[in-house]
Every structure is written in structure tokens, then in C-alpha cells.
Simulated scan of single mutants.
Amino acid sequence: MLVSPTALYALLLLAIPLAAVVLISFWTQTGVRDFDTTFTLANYKEALTDPLYRQLMLRSLMVSGLVTLITVLLAFPIAYFVSFGVKPEHKSLWIFLITIPFWTSYLIRVFLWKVILGYNGVLNSGLKVVGLLEEPLSFILYNVNAVILTLAHAYAPFAILPIFVALEKIDRSLLEASRDLGESRTMTFLRVTLPLAAPGVVAAVLIVFIPTIGDYVTPRLVGGPGGLMIANMIQTQFLRLNNAPLGATLAVIAMLIVAVIAVVFLILGNRAAGGKKGGRT
């Protein structure tokens, strides 16, 4: 009785829409809202053999992977500083400051990056003022690099918070014991702190990687033709080309790839957690 309301809620909002997408991927669209419900694998064959879709999928994985790597590498020092370098009574203030970007609309933040990276934007104007440029740079906007930079900034708080939580759970006496046994600060970090923080790092990786691979707003606004990702093609198939089955097929393939990668990271996280417990015993 206690579980059934939430189970029904999850079924209505998650399972049924997902099942509908999978089902539509095996159909053929014959009109604006008409479908041939005959089972077919033609959509999957086209999605897996067309070079355009493969290129977009590989680009999406590359962009999401780089965004995740950059975000986690930049987030870990911040989370480490807040956890170990800030007084306990000031930590709440720092977390509050980290979450300030959430106060503004995601679209506004993307548009601000357009202002910063534009041909006559803040970055080019600043470099011209200090004499480092004679002509504005034209390659810093409307490409993959702009997409990576914008996504990394947008998802940084999502990476900082889970890492911070994992670092806060570390028993400080374990670090003291490591130092008492003769380990340096560097080796203590590598052999004690980092393994204990691994679950937070894995969580940060998943939290950043999964949504970025499906982002279509940022590539559309700052990516240009060379920065579009698979989500943009899915949107195009549904809303412009009137081919919902192929769009659903691309979505299913993207979800399967993300699921496999997520499972790999979860396995690595569980192994790290197992090694942590074994080391502590």
C-alpha cells in the first residue's frame, strides 16, 4: 500500500513514455499523424548505417566525455577546498555561493556565453584592448569548443556537490592515521582520500554525462553546424522532418549507449567502494 502510489507515479511518467518511444521506433510514419504499425527494423538499419547519424553520435559521446572530464577535474579541487580548507561554520555559505548559477535561467547563461565568445564579444574586445589581438577571433563561437565550454560551466555545480558530499563523509582520523604511519600528503590523498571519494566522483560523472549527451539547446545556440549533436537530429526528425519513428530510433540507440556507459561507471564505483571497505578492514 505504501509503495503502490509512487510505483504508479513512476510507471505513468517514466515506464509508459519510454515504452511508447521504443514501440514507435519499430513503426513507419506514413503521414503527419499516421503510422504504419507493421513491425520493421528499417529505422535501426538506417540509424546504424547512415554516416551522418554515426558522426553525430560519436560527436555527442566525444563532447559529453570531454565536458564530463573537464567538469569533474575542475570540480574536485573546489569540493576538496570547501570540505577540507573551509571552516565548518562557513561551508554552508560556500555551498550557497556554488548554487547561485541555478538562480538564473539556463537559457540566459547560454546567451551570456554567446555574448562573451561572440565576434565582438567580451573576450575579443578585452584581448583587443590589451593589445593581444588585432582582429577578433572568429573560431571561438559556433563550434564544438563553444559547446564544451558552455556545458562545462552549466553543469559544474552538479559535479561539485556530490564530490563535496563524498569528501564530507570521510573519517578524518583515517587521514591522520595515514600521516602517522609515515605517508606524505600526496600519498595520503592518492591512497586514502581519492579512493574514499570515488563514489562521489562516479556520481558526478553520471550526473554530468547523462544529461549533456541529450542536450540540444546549447549546441543549437552556440555550436553552429559543426557543433550539433545527436539530440538536435532527434529534435529535427520529430519536429521538422515528420519522421517520429526514426527520431525515436535515434533516441533509443542513444539511451542504450548511455545505459552501457553508466553501468560501466557504476561497476567501477562499486569496485572502488569494495576496495575502500577492504582497505579499512
Rank of each mutant, 00 (worst) to 15 (best):
I160S: 02
E135C: 04
L206V: 05
V192Q: 00
F164A: 12
L190M: 06
E176M: 06
G200T: 00
L141N: 14
D215S: 01
I207E: 00
P199W: 02
I95M: 15
Y142V: 04
S138A: 12
V205Y: 00
R172D: 05
H153D: 15
S138F: 07
S178K: 03
R179M: 06
V110C: 12
Y106F: 12
A198T: 09
L151R: 05
G118N: 12
P157G: 07
P88V: 10
S105W: 09
R172T: 15
F189D: 03
P88Y: 05
A166S: 11
V122K: 04
R109S: 11
I207F: 01
A198Q: 01
G126C: 07
L149M: 15
K91I: 05
I108A: 02
V205C: 04
I98A: 00
G85K: 03
M187R: 13
W113C: 07
V202P: 01
I148H: 11
A159R: 00
L132H: 06
K91V: 04
S125W: 10
I98T: 02
E168V: 12
E168Y: 10
Y155Q: 05
G214H: 03
E89M: 07
T186I: 14
L151A: 06
E183P: 04
E89V: 15
A156N: 03
P136V: 07
T99F: 10
T150P: 14
K87N: 07
L175Y: 11
V147S: 12
A152M: 11
S92H: 07
G121L: 09
K169Y: 14
V129F: 15
N145D: 13
